Simulated assay, not measured.
Amino acid sequence: MEIRHATNPTDFKSYTSDRLRNDFLMENLFVPGELNMVYSHYDRVITGGVIPTTSEIRLDAGDKLRTEYFLERREIGIVNIGEKAVVTVEGETFELNKRDCLYVGKGNQNVTFASADPDKPTKLYLVSANAHKEYPTQLMPIKDATPTKLGSDAESNNRTIYKYIHGDGIQSCQLMMGMTLLEPNNMWNTMPAHVHDRRMEVYLYFDMDEESRVFHFMGEPKETRHMLIRNEQAVLSPPWSIHSGVGTNNYTFIWAMAGENYTFTDMDFVDMNDLR
């Protein structure tokens, strides 16, 4: 597990492109046969990717968390971005098709990941936050998630949002998680921009071809920077930062948040005239 320390917006202003990428971009989460994770000091969120091949892979952080097992004081959201997957929680199996989400609550000691067909390995994206209360394990197929249509072709942000883990969906302590799909010929997300200083956010961009890129914008509204992001790469967004992007093509992204506020009512929107 890799450790990422937090920074402050004053220091951020002097960051080079390499420093931005080293501190905020997660480039290699998905490696066949491995579970890879990044521990961030922003709300102690753990972001991970796993590709089980010929054998199942156990959810385990070794001695990094200094707990007896991964979910002793944590909860986790799992979204399948690949072929059919099988996740086993305390002996109960859950089958996840692409874009399905599984929530596993605090206190579950035995969690394993496997591909339904080893010849067609799955790709599972994981986000975990600290938890103080147990909530039941729950699977939400994308077909059961309520779609919300936003944006327009004229604004190049015609998109559908699926909320999985949130106040009116799968219940959790502080983790929220969902997915946004942009329609063809639409490239912008989260613009006009906003911040929410009470919770951090992490984005995973995927369903992009090898030549496509997303220009991800971050930083304080008056001091923005950008990074170029490839398919299946994730980026950390500090609570004080905007988190917006525009692609060379349409794409899909998974958003996850953790922090003080458990609703979508704490966003501080930024006037376009205030962006720099």
Score class of each variant (00 low, 15 high):
N261T: 15
S40C: 07
E232W: 06
I46L: 10
K222N: 14
N80P: 05
L236Q: 01
P192S: 05
V31P: 00
L25T: 11
L102G: 00
L65P: 07
S156P: 02
M177D: 06
D117K: 13
K13S: 14
D18W: 04
G82D: 03
T47D: 02
M37Q: 03
W188S: 15
M37T: 15
S241W: 03
G247H: 06
V79F: 02
E260P: 07
T265N: 12
N8Q: 01
R19S: 11
K149D: 12
K98D: 01
I170H: 02
T180G: 13
Q233A: 03
S156C: 04
N250H: 14
N261M: 13
T93F: 03
S14I: 02
G178S: 07
F70K: 07
F12I: 02
T190G: 05
G91A: 08
T16P: 04
N250S: 15
L59R: 02
D100P: 11
Y251T: 06
T224E: 15
P141W: 02
A61Q: 06
M176C: 05
H194P: 02
V104R: 00
P32I: 10
T112D: 00
A256C: 11
P141F: 05
I254P: 04
N231H: 13
L20C: 05
R199I: 00
V195D: 06
E56L: 07
V202H: 01
Y42W: 14
P52M: 06
L102K: 03
T67R: 04
A6G: 07
E2V: 03
N110W: 00
D144F: 13
L20G: 09
N130C: 04
G245M: 06
K143R: 14
M179Y: 09
S115G: 12
D60G: 00
